[in-house]
């Protein structure tokens, strides 16, 4: 099976030849090419080459065209702060006073240099991998982007106390998110990962999610012209699973704080599972620990398909060693070949 066939089979809740494994690597390509993280992300060709070299080196099952979360607020006019040992981070929020929401104008994807780089990377890797390997693009959800637009405190005040401003902001963010997701699909992405950490029950209660993040996701995902995976970036999902299953997403990213077996049981085939190796934990894992973590995850979630092994956050730390990443993929081959032997 090709990687794409393997993934499509599991998403159909059938067992492929082995468990698919997504190493959601963003910065390791810089290391591979001997570049600083800033240099690496300055050129779409670097990121394309980095992704392709990592695909060959590790033998996992996806290309990940995600640069860094702050690239979206960069497109809205925000600052990005680079560092040598981690992902570029968002600078100060775009607006300091919530009334500034009224004057925000969504950027046009075609006019944004930073978003163009991601699209160009997508086109380049698509030329190389064709339909053999899924290309995973990323958007921040309209509901979660405001953490970088306003700051978390201001945003919570808007959610709880300013419904008109909230609705105005969501309308603008939805327009941007849909255009950005569809541009990536058009450039060659196979699916879109919809990062929505604020919707996690770790951040807002499920009843509030129903009237906010759920409605936003339902409207937005319906207009994205390709399959989507919802990811809470380490946040829990279980208390909101019933609603999540109705948003139109096909896959759910699971936190390392939750039990894969329980999530699988509750979902009962309605969504596929992506997760949930502890990305930060990988920094210190020995090879033996790595193998045990992979074996355990596979035993809990792989039988019957509907499972892609991955990290829990959607961005593996720069400090995770290549040997650990290789051990993850090798362990998948050892323990994740179907039928799964308990």
């Amino acid at each position: 099976m090709t990687s794409l066939e393997r993934v499509l089979t599991t998403l159909g809740h059938k067992e492929p030849d082995r468990v698919p494994v997504f190493l959601l690597l963003t910065m390791h390509g810089a290391k591979t090419l001997g570049l600083s993280i800033k240099e690496y992300f300055s050129n779409p060709g670097h990121v394309a080459e980095g992704q392709l070299q990592m695909l060959r080196k590790f033998g996992h099952d996806c290309v990940y065209t995600f640069y860094y979360a702050a690239i979206e607020t960069e497109a809205w006019g925000g600052e990005v702060i680079y560092r040598d040992d981690g992902p570029p981070n968002a600078g100060a929020p775009l607006i300091s006073n919530v009334s500034g929401i009224r004057s925000l104008v969504p950027p046009r994807v075609a006019e944004s240099r930073c978003l163009w780089k991601v699209l160009e990377t997508t086109r380049q890797v698509k030329t190389e991998v064709g339909n053999s390997v899924p290309i995973i693009g990323v958007v921040m959800s309209p509901f979660s982007l405001p953490v970088m637009q306003l700051g978390f405190e201001n945003y919570l005040e808007v959610i709880y106390n300013h419904p008109d401003l909230f609705n105005d902001l969501m309308a603008k963010n939805e327009v941007f998110c849909i255009e950005w997701a569809n541009a990536q699909l058009q450039a060659g992405a196979t699916a879109i990962c919809y990062f929505d950490p604020v919707s996690s029950p770790s951040i807002i209660p499920s009843d509030l999610y129903h009237s906010t993040g759920f409605s936003v996701a339902s409207r937005t995902l319906a207009q994205i012209k390709g399959p989507t995976a919802t990811h809470f970036a380490s946040g829990r999902c279980l208390p909101s699973v019933e609603l999540l299953a109705k948003t139109g997403t096909a896959v759910l990213g699971v936190s390392a704080l939750e039990d894969l077996g329980e999530v699988k049981r509750v979902l009962n085939g309605r969504l596929s599972i992506l997760g949930n190796l502890n990305g930060l934990g990988m920094v210190d894992w020995t090879i033996a620990q790595t193998r045990e973590k992979v074996r355990e995850a596979i035993a809990k979630a792989a039988p019957g398909g509907g499972f892609i092994l991955s990290d829990n956050h959607g961005e593996i730390p720069y400090q995770v060693k290549d040997e650990t990443l290789m051990a993850i993929v090798e362990s998948v081959k050892d323990f994740g070949t179907y039928p799964i032997v308990h």
């Binding site: 405190e153 919570l156 959610i159 029950p201 770790s202 951040i203 807002i204 209660p205 829990r236 704080l257």
Partner: peptide, 14 residues
């Protein structure tokens, strides 16, 4: 309760 997963961070903050 937030640590245990039964309360959300927004509730802790508010």
């Amino acid at each position: 309760r937030w640590q245990a997963g039964s309360v959300a961070l927004s509730q802790v903050y508010m």
